[in-house]
Amino acid sequence: MRRKKIHVSRKERVFDVLNVVLLCLFTLVCIYPFYYMLCYAFSDSTMANKGITLYPRGFTLHNFVEVFRLKSLPRAFLISVFRTFAGCAVTLACCSFFAYIVSKKEMYFRKLIYRFTIITMYVSGGLIPTYLVFRAYGLRNTLWVYILPGAVNAYYVILMKTFMEQMPDSLEEAATIDGAGIVTCFLRVVLPLSKPILATIAVFSMVGQWNSWFDAHIYMTRPQYYPLQYVLYNFLQEAQRAAAAMQESGEASGLAITPNSVRMTITAISTLPILFVYPFMQRYFVKGIMIGAVKG
């Protein structure tokens, strides 16, 4: 891009150095907490308690073994995994098929249905009415409450519809002449060609599902359906209360490791999937926000 031959003044060189230093410092601030968390989770519990800064003390996997002995944890992990994959699958299936139908110009009431969908992006019932209605539907204490509310997402529908409209009509026409119906056309022709946008939306939906906890907070009264994030939240609340009372209590104290190690290890468990997946998925994230920026 930039020609190297151009004379670089001293002032500019100073700027370059300062710039890089500043950005690197900020990057360090962004990354360090995660690094600290990993160090703590992989450190021997009692040694970690004395303080950790740059490297794990007494490297061990013991914390992870201990934490999975907690009654709530393996279950919560499975719930989180379940909601991540099931939620993503349902969202993809519903949004893509709906987007496909709405992208068909010959449909009756097309404009009306499309507007009906878009409006939901701008106006929503708000927390309390939604809570009351979902409760009336009997969604409380069922796993459906994690999956159904996000099944048809207006924003995803817009993204997919725009993508599908850019495909050449001739492909589908050929399939139709060969006798394919609407569903076959969708499954065999359009869906395979929509992989890029599907991947982008899948990544967004999965990260959203993995990270969400507030639905569990208000709709779940039975701990067996708590996702990992919410279990962590409860541990933190407990810890804050305990710190205020200067004593540690609760489920965590039954283990052979300090409560702080328990928390850091659970935090690590809930962050690691994202840390692993993130570098590979980053281009999808960027792509997603770019489509959004153009459309929104």
């Binding site: 995660f34 600290y36 994030q229 962590l232 933190l236 804050q240 850091m264 659970i266």
Partner: peptide, 12 residues
């Protein structure tokens, strides 16, 4: 990462 994880990190 979720705000819960942020708060866990902040707490530690």
């Amino acid at each position: 990462v979720s705000w819960i994880i942020v708060s866990a990190l902040c707490f530690s």
